[in-house]
Amino acid sequence: MAIAPTIPAIEPAAETRVPTRSRHRRRLTPARAAILALKFVAGAIIVGLALFPLAWMVISGFKLRTEVVRTPFQFFPDVWEVQNYVQILSDPSFVRTLAITGLGAVIFTTGSIMINSMAAYAFARLEFVGKRIVWPLVLMTMFIPGMTILLTSFIVVTKLYMLDTLAVLILPGLASAAHVFFVRQFYLNIPSSLEEAARVDGCGRWGVYFRVFLPLSKAPFVVVGIGSFMAYWNSFVWPVLTITNPDLFQVQQYLANFRGERSSELGLLMAGSALAAAPIIILFLIFQRQIIANIKMAGLK
């Protein structure tokens, strides 16, 4: 009779314990505490110096006419008055100026994102004749000061009969080499497998752009959009040169005219300036994390 071989029982392996690192807290020595205190004080001084003009402008809007330039200097008013803000907001021309500037800024930002992103996609993913020549020429425009082409730009828009129209404020500045470069750096880091999969599914170049690249572009679009909106909102020289119709005055143009015509009402001017700065500050507060996190993307490649 054959004897069945006995299989030795396999004992369960002993439970292995992964040694954990003991967490050692760095001792706060007097020297380290002094360095941290100096960093905190230096940071507080820098932040205070940066915010002082803005805070003074907002608080000056609550001062009476004679308190803004009082001697000796007084930061806070004796009595807080909201009349300046109420009066400037009840001015139809100021409200119209904010509305027309906001409308132009939204159109300009949308157009800038679309045009610059399409150009960035072309330079990042497409191969066409003259690409190696055109791309350096595009980058060279980043180093040309805007004031040097101001006269020629004015002649061009005059020949096109664009003066005193919203188009003269929007169209000339839509294309930006800096924004094209920034978005292109992001597109270079998108895996080519996504593009190849879209092409296999039957997408053409426009389909790849709209269905693959555009949905992934939220991060650079935030930076480009904020930059475009701020550039339009804060523009002064170009509107003064091309807009003479009061119904199309931009916010900076309106404030400059207000200062020239009603220079004695400084409290009212400070209130208007504070309200004009509010949209940019609000946008930065909303998107500050995205801006800080994505501003480094230009150096990825």
Rank of each mutant, 00 (worst) to 15 (best):
I3M: 15
A13I: 06
R17W: 08
R27D: 05
A33H: 11
I35N: 15
V41P: 00
V41R: 04
G43F: 05
I46T: 12
A50L: 11
V58G: 07
I59Y: 06
I59P: 06
S60L: 13
G61K: 04
F62M: 06
L64A: 12
R65Q: 14
T66S: 15
V69G: 05
T71G: 05
P72H: 13
F73I: 07
F76Q: 10
P77G: 11
D78Q: 10
Q83E: 09
Q87P: 04
P92A: 11
S93K: 13
F94D: 05
V106P: 07
G111E: 12
M114A: 07
N116L: 00
A119Q: 06
A122Q: 11
F123N: 13
R125Y: 12
L126G: 03
F128R: 02
K131R: 14
I133G: 15
V134M: 13
P136Q: 00
L139C: 05
L139Q: 04
G146M: 02
M147L: 13
T148G: 00
T148K: 05
S153Y: 02
I155M: 07
V156W: 05
L160R: 04
D164A: 06
A167C: 03
L171F: 11
L171Q: 00
L174Y: 02
S176M: 03
H179R: 14
V180I: 13
F181H: 01
P191G: 01
L194V: 07
E195V: 07
E196R: 14
E196N: 10
A198E: 02
R199N: 12
V200F: 10
C203L: 08
F210M: 14
L214Y: 02
F221R: 04
I226Y: 07
G227V: 05
S228D: 09
Y232I: 01
V237C: 06
W238E: 02
V240Y: 06
I243H: 07
D247W: 01
Y254E: 08
Y254M: 11
L255G: 09
S263H: 15
E265Q: 12
L266G: 08
L266C: 04
L266K: 09
S273F: 00
A274Y: 01
L275G: 01
I282S: 02
I286R: 07
I291S: 00
I291C: 01
M297C: 00
A298V: 04
L300G: 10
